[in-house]
Structure formats: structure tokens, C-alpha cells
Simulated assay, not measured.
Amino acid sequence: MSSAPRRPGYEAVLFDKDGTLVLDVPYCADPRLVQVMPTAPAALAMVRAAGIPIGIVSNQSGIGRGLISPDAAAAVFDEVERLLGPFDTVRYCPHAPEDGCRCRKPRPGMLLDAAEELGVAPERMAVVGDIGADVDAALAIGAAAVLVPTAVTRPEEIRRAPVVRPDLVSAVEYLLHGAADPVRAAG
């Protein structure tokens, strides 16, 4: 009998950064402003304990808009990893919304790149985020999507999401263990 942890059906879990893993500080260029969401450390520990690769997928339009430098964005991502531990992949879109790139969520390019890097079929991944663009990007490639709403999440995004959980630990519990009730209002 093996003592290895049981791996659920997902082969990777990708997390949005701002508003999901850390508090959303618009166009954050200062690592000292990074504040971890309360349930992020426990949620990430659960996924790591299950032996599942994790990643970050994040829109960073401040770079494309000239509001933050690529080096400043990289320093913020480094701080996130310092606070939350290593990630198996970190992807971010540096483009402004009007650039029409393939990577900016809700487009799925960033997720597809992460899947390729991790060697995982897109439909074997799960994506956890706080807004509709996160959910839409996941659904566009057949990945599972879990919405963890915040104050900026619009009511219609909550209604459209296939799975809604009130915090990251609940989202990860759903992904690891399933639930009889796939949608629960975050309240």
C-alpha cells in the first residue's frame, strides 16, 4: 500500500494573483504592499500536499499602460512567492486591454502556455479566481473554474460561474474532494 497522497482528477491548479492570492492593489509596483489573502497559505498547502502542481496566471495591464515597469512587476511576483512559497509556473499578461493579445484573460493564451509548461492537458486543470475573466478563460479551454468573489466581483459574474466558493480553502476543498452541491453562493 502506497503512502503517497491521493491525487484528485486535476493535474494542475492555476490561481489568479490580485484579489485571489493577494489583496488587489491596483498597478502594484511595490513589493512592500503585497498582503496575502487570509486563506491563501492554507489553500496552497492543501494543493501542494496533494502533489498537484500550482501556478499563477495574472493580467498585468499596468505594464502595457506604462504605469509599472516589467522589473517592478517581477519584484511583486517575487514577493508573492516569498510569502506563499514556490509556484510551478508563473504567467502574466503585460498587455493593455486594447492590445488584443491572446494571453489577456478572458482569452485563454496564458492558461494554455501554463498547461504546456506543466505538461498537462488544459481540460485536466482547474482555475481559481475572483472575477468573470478568470472563469471565462478557464471555460474557454475546458478547464474547471471556481470563483471566489470579492467586493469587486459583479453579481452577474457570480450568477454565471459554474462553482462559487466563499474563500480559497473552500475552493480547494471542492477541487480536491468534490461536492454534492456544485454551486454555493459566497456569502
Rank of each mutant, 00 (worst) to 15 (best):
E98V: 05
V22W: 00
R104C: 05
A143P: 00
G132W: 03
V183W: 15
E173H: 13
A4H: 06
M37C: 15
P108S: 09
D136A: 15
A171F: 05
D99K: 08
F87H: 04
R102V: 14
A151C: 10
T153A: 06
A74C: 09
D16P: 01
G51L: 11
V120T: 01
A74N: 13
A12H: 07
G142P: 04
R124S: 14
G142H: 03
V57D: 09
A114S: 15
V148P: 04
V128K: 01
M1N: 09
C101F: 03
C103P: 03
P166R: 13
V164L: 06
R91M: 15
S69K: 12
D88L: 00
M110T: 05
R184A: 12
I131D: 07
A45N: 14
V169S: 08
A145M: 07
G129T: 03
L83C: 09
A180R: 13
S2M: 07
L23P: 00
L118H: 01
L44W: 10
G9C: 10
A74H: 13
A45F: 12
V164A: 05
M125E: 01
D167C: 03
L112Y: 01
P26I: 11
R82C: 06
P70T: 05
E81P: 00
A72W: 07
S69P: 08
V47Q: 10
R184E: 13
P70I: 08
G85T: 03
G109V: 03
Y27F: 13
R124Q: 13
P5L: 04
L111F: 02
G85I: 05
V152R: 14
D71Y: 09
R159Q: 14
L175S: 04
I141H: 05
A186G: 13
A180M: 09
P155V: 05
S2P: 09
V34Y: 11
L84R: 00
Y92P: 03
P108K: 01
G85N: 04
I56C: 12
A114D: 02
A137N: 00
F77Y: 11
A45S: 15
S69M: 10
P70V: 07
D88I: 00
P94K: 05
P149T: 09
A144W: 08
R154P: 02
D99L: 07
E81S: 13
R154C: 02
K17C: 12
L33A: 15
D71N: 13
A140Y: 04
A171K: 02
P149R: 08
S170W: 02
V148D: 00
A29N: 12
A42L: 15
V22Y: 05
S2W: 06
H95K: 01
A42T: 15
G100A: 09
I131Y: 01
I63Y: 09
H95N: 03
V22K: 04
A115G: 05
R91S: 07
P122V: 02
G132P: 01
D130P: 00
R91T: 08
V47P: 12
R107G: 04
V90N: 03
R6W: 13
T153W: 06
V13S: 07
T39W: 10
V127L: 09
P162F: 02
R65T: 10
P8K: 06
V13G: 07
P38S: 14
G64T: 09
F77N: 14
